[in-house]
Computed example of a mutant assay.
Amino acid sequence: MSATVNVVLFKSKTLSNGEHPLMIRICKDNKKKYKSLGVSIHPQFWDFNKSKPRRNCPNKEAIQNLITEKTKEYSEQILAFTLESKDYTATKLVEKINIFKTKNTVQELFDKEINRLKQEGRLKYASTYKELLVSLLKFNIHLDIYFSEIDVIWLKRYEAWLRSKGLASNSIGVRFRTLRVLFNKAIEEKLVKAEYYPFKTYKVSKLHEETVKRSITKLDVERIISYKSDREYTRLAIDLFYFSYLSGGINFVDISYLTESNIVDQRLVYTRRKTKKLIKIPIQEKAFEIVVKYKQQDNPYLFPILSTFHKTDIQRANRVNKVLAIINKGLKGIGEELNLPIDLTTYVARHTYATVLKRSGVNTSIISESLGHSSEKVTQIYLDSFENSQIDEAMKNLL
């Protein structure tokens, strides 16, 4: 038996001001369930025959809109149950609707996610959320809004505001991708219905611009490792760059946290701190030589970046960022002396690893797996388009 939904003025309860609460009434299997709409009306303003506010009712239009919205909500859920051939009671119907009524605001979910990421030690990812939060607060003044209010028009306004601040498409894209992840989280936690998802229409992909080349050739890698220097940090910079290149493009943060436990049966086994994906790759002989060179008995970490002195997540994060800045400064100087076509950083090793494998004919899915990417789409960003000389050579086959 299908349920019926209507709105009644609940005369069994009278408030101190003489008004009665307005209630949704669900009837199913000869049982009734009442749910307050959160408003009350004096009986003189309610048409009991037509079950609607009279013409002279204060706030008539707002109350009628509320009634229409709520009855539609319950009717749609009844239809959903029917299409799914699910048995339900009046109580279950109300509970299903109420899942979406205990919603957090956008601000509350931001705070929750930032705290969660910090507790998991994913401080860099937490800072990405924090940057987006600060940006949105400047744009919208406050975020005491529900996710259903973030629609396509709202997103377009935010994009226009970011562009007025001089941000490039790629920088805007980072903010929108982070916001999209948060919106998906809100749907997952039933804070908003999937039908309100605005990113089906608003395409974040349009915000991607082709990035500046961030990889070098194998010959350039050989020139870097052959670079001579007596400076301790310069040698460390070169060795870490080469270790990353030889070890699946492992990024600097993950290198920093490596210990002896990450070497198992001549393989490097670790979980990416960013994506939480488990990586298992063979250790190249030259990569292992670099590990042996820097491993110290009194330090559990493989490289002299972290030590037992750094006890808290904040201390470790600060130390990693400090050393990374020094390493990248050293690499940049090397790149300038060698006249490399791009600024040399630790990340260039990761991009170069991916690009060299791709040009060697390795499948993108395998490269993606070794990099620990969440999808092949992310990997594509790492891979350079073919050089003009390769295209020129290929075009000769047309004649």
Rank of each mutant, 00 (worst) to 15 (best):
F252D: 05
T211K: 15
R235D: 09
K138T: 10
T178G: 13
I172S: 05
V192I: 13
K138N: 15
Y125I: 15
E189K: 13
F183L: 12
F147M: 15
E120D: 13
K190P: 02
G249E: 04
I145F: 06
Y257D: 01
T217P: 03
V192F: 08
H142R: 11
L155G: 09
K213P: 03
E210Q: 15
S226P: 05
F243G: 04
S164D: 09
G173H: 05
A160G: 12
K156P: 01
Y245F: 14
R175H: 15
K218T: 08
L240C: 02
D220F: 00
Y125E: 10
F243H: 03
F243T: 06
L136Q: 12
T201H: 11
L133W: 12
K200A: 06
T178R: 14
V221C: 02
S205N: 15
Y158P: 11
R214V: 06
A194C: 07
Y202Q: 02
W154C: 05
Y242L: 01
K218W: 03
L207W: 02
T217I: 03
E195V: 13
Y227M: 01
L179Y: 02
R214Y: 04
R180P: 02
T201G: 09
F243V: 05
A186S: 13
W154Q: 06
L137K: 15
L155K: 10
E189N: 11
Y245S: 01
G248I: 03
I216V: 00
D151N: 15
E120H: 11
K193S: 13
K138C: 08
S215C: 13
I250D: 01
E189R: 12
R163D: 07
Y257H: 14
K193Q: 14
F241H: 01
Y125P: 00
E222F: 03
A237N: 02
Y146F: 14
K200T: 11
T211V: 12
A237I: 05
S256P: 00
V212R: 15
I224A: 00
S164P: 01
R214W: 05
R177P: 06
S226H: 07
D254L: 01
T201D: 10
S256N: 03
S244A: 04
K203L: 11
E222D: 12
I187Q: 08
L179F: 04
Y129L: 14
L167N: 11
F252A: 04
L133V: 07
K190A: 15
S171L: 09
V174D: 06
K200C: 05
L240T: 03
E188S: 12
I255W: 01
I238P: 00
Y257C: 06
D151I: 12
K185H: 13
K130N: 10
E159D: 12
K130S: 13
R223S: 06
F176A: 07
V152P: 01
L219Y: 10
S127A: 12
Y233M: 13
N251D: 04
Y242M: 02
W161C: 07
E222H: 06
S226L: 06
K190C: 11
T234Q: 10
R163L: 13
F199I: 07
W161D: 08
V204C: 12
V181M: 10
L219E: 14
Y202W: 07
T234H: 06
S256H: 00
S205H: 11
I141K: 15
L219D: 13
L143S: 10
S229C: 05
